[in-house]
């Protein structure tokens, strides 16, 4: 693969990642969130595959297969089942800040991510390093979603967005993670999502709703 193709593919996947993240913040429907998350998972897998091809590393290609399976297929499926049982409430009705404000916050956070990454960018001028701010921005978006959405499934989506951001930064800066470590991290994420999914359905059966603002008894 020529250097130009590599750079362009890398920038394409990074752009796709950021676009999906912004769209997650924009959209309110949980179904759309899950689909976007799946696309983002495939984009991440693509990014890893591009890196693997560029560095001729078979291990990274295996990692990309793993990422695609987990983030592109398994996790969205698990989330889809969580929302499937409750079709009527599959929307984030009243987020704590409205969409306009959220999009403004997103632009601010993207700027911040680029500003903060200046020391990292100064390390080298490769295409991989140049894409690092995208990962940072995704992590910040994830945090934003976590702290402004009320629905329990939205929390999961925020968490996964955060995780995708961290993974992106890791792949871009470290030039890939050993397969064993990636396997461990992926299993962790899977486990967390499964537990939270069970918890969400328990919350719903207990309170008849998955709105976390109804649960403010846990203090003192």
């Amino acid at each position: 693969m020529s250097e130009t193709t590599y750079t362009q593919l890398l920038q394409l996947s990074a752009g796709l990642l950021l676009l999906c993240a912004v769209l997650i913040v924009w959209r309110r429907s949980l179904g759309a969130h899950i689909r976007l998350l799946a696309v983002q998972g495939w984009a991440l897998a693509g990014l890893v595959a591009v890196l693997g091809l560029h560095e001729h590393s078979a291990e990274l290609l295996w990692v990309s297969v793993l990422v695609a399976t987990l983030k592109g297929v398994v996790l969205p499926a698990v989330l889809a089942r969580a929302t499937a049982s409750d079709r009527t409430r599959a929307r984030e009705e009243t987020p704590l800040i409205n969409t306009t404000a959220a999009l403004l916050a997103v632009s601010f956070l993207t700027m911040l991510a680029y500003l903060v990454s200046r020391p990292v960018l100064a390390l080298g001028s490769t295409a991989a390093v140049a894409a690092v701010p995208v990962g940072m921005a995704m992590a910040l978006f994830g945090f934003l979603v976590l702290s402004t959405r009320r629905h329990a499934v939205s929390q999961l989506i925020g968490f996964l967005l955060l995780d995708n951001g961290i993974a992106t930064v890791a792949f871009l800066t470290a030039g890939g993670v050993p397969l064993v470590v990636e396997l461990g991290v992926s299993l962790d994420v899977l486990l967390v999502v499964l537990i939270l999914r069970v918890l969400t359905s328990r919350i719903r059966t207990e309170y008849g709703d998955a709105d976390l603002d109804d649960m403010t008894e846990l203090r003192d």
């Binding site: 945090f143 009320r150 976390l212 603002d213 203090r219």
Partner: peptide, 25 residues
């Protein structure tokens, strides 16, 4: 400050993170 809302606690750490990042930037 501590009213039991998960969002508030998340917002605290989020804001703290953003402030630290802004200061660093």
């Amino acid at each position: 400050l501590q009213n039991g809302s998960i969002h508030r606690y998340l917002a605290y750490s989020f804001f703290a993170l953003v402030v630290v990042l802004v200061v660093v930037a």
